[in-house]
């Protein structure tokens, strides 16, 4: 039983990491849209770079949420009902974002749907980190595992700093992927942005570290967390270095690896908590007290072991079909 719960703690992290890396680049492009693209052609290059993929990328979130529901239903129940308004903002953003690209292409009101695209990319990119920050630093819970705070409980300094850090990580995915898929000026602009965002990322990381010393002194005593933290910073540095040297592929890979570093860091700080209770640590939802039955975890593991290799195989294949720079004459 113990092993299964640890495996699922890691697997949900892996699913959310998959979401961060893949939907991260299309969310990031959404937020950076006004800064990256200076004319209609450049906008179309960016949109066509993410067009075949964003929908599939979002499935990582749906699967992650589904896996959380199945493996730790109490965590799913507490977080989704407790963070109600925040998650509704995410939900409405994801709904509008999904249609904005298609609607921009198909209607004459391009300006409007572009704005919708940018804003609806920005809000989730920021709020995911805020939500994770709350989960890590803890929220008030009662003995029935219910959230007892309110909307403003969620907006404390540490979660907000993680929101910004998460946003910068997503932007890094966006800028490196844009560079990978574009040529000429757009490509240059993306590389320049990558360098700037890398520095911002490191700055925000240090800010979050300072706040960790203040809010969670016990977390800074975990050596594993320090290792993951240092690795993350090294990966971000390599992202910047490769952007400077013009290796867009490596730059994107290192950005993705730095995201993996962030999630590993978050996981090592949280473990074995799934949702910390800030009022009384015995009320925390942990992987031990909030998990589903052994049988369900086993069945889910079998499903994941059969299904995910296949998913990864055809995902890789389809990305290869669409590899290379987006050239508009090609699409037309």
């Amino acid at each position: 039983m113990e092993v299964l719960q640890i495996i699922w703690f890691i697997l949900i992290g892996v699913l959310l990491l998959g979401y961060s890396i893949l939907d991260g680049f299309d969310l990031g492009i959404g937020v950076l849209f006004p800064f990256l693209a200076k004319n209609d052609n450049e906008k179309r290059v960016l949109l066509n770079a993410i067009a075949p993929f964003w929908d599939g990328n979002e499935v990582w979130l749906l699967t992650g949420a589904g896996a959380l529901f199945a493996a730790f239903s109490n965590v799913y129940a507490t977080v989704f009902s407790g963070f109600y308004l925040a998650l509704m903002i995410v939900l409405f953003s994801l709904i509008l974002r999904a249609v904005s690209m298609e609607f921009r292409a198909q209607t004459d009101n391009k300006k409007l749907w572009e704005r919708v695209f940018v804003i609806s990319s920005f809000l989730p990119s920021l709020l995911y980190g805020v939500a994770l920050g709350n989960i890590i630093v803890g929220v008030p819970l009662n003995a029935q595992m219910e959230f007892t705070g309110n909307f403003f409980t969620l907006l404390r300094p540490f979660p907000l700093s993680l929101g910004l850090l998460g946003l910068s990580a997503i932007l890094l995915q966006g800028s490196t992927y844009s560079a990978l898929k574009s040529e000429g000026e757009l490509n240059n602009r993306a590389r320049e942005l990558t360098k700037v965002i890398s520095l911002i990322f490191i700055g925000l990381f240090l800010l979050a570290l300072v706040l960790t010393f203040v809010c969670m002194p016990d977390a800074v005593s975990k050596p594993v967390a320090w290792i993951f933290g240092i690795i993350t910073i090294i990966f971000v540095w390599f992202t910047k270095l490769n952007a400077k040297n013009g290796d867009d592929f490596k730059s994107f890979i290192f950005a993705s690896l730095s995201f993996a570093g962030l999630w590993s860091l978050a996981g090592s700080v949280m473990f074995p908590n799934m949702l910390k209770a800030s009022n009384n640590s015995t009320l925390s939802l942990t992987i031990w007290n909030a998990s589903s039955s052994k049988l369900t975890l086993t069945v889910m593991l079998i499903i994941a072991l059969i299904g995910m290799p296949i998913v990864l195989a055809y995902t890789y294949m389809i990305y290869r079909w669409f590899r290379g720079k987006v050239v508009l004459e090609d699409v037309e």
Partner: peptide, 30 residues
């Protein structure tokens, strides 16, 4: 009912929704 009801939703993602949306990308743009 999460112990039972959650698994099909997760399995939908793994076995169905990835397949559908990734290959739809190919149909629409490829």
């Amino acid at each position: 009912v999460g112990d039972i009801f959650g698994a099909p939703l997760a399995a939908e993602g793994v076995f169905a929704f990835f397949l559908e949306s990734m290959f739809l990308g190919v149909l629409v743009f490829g």
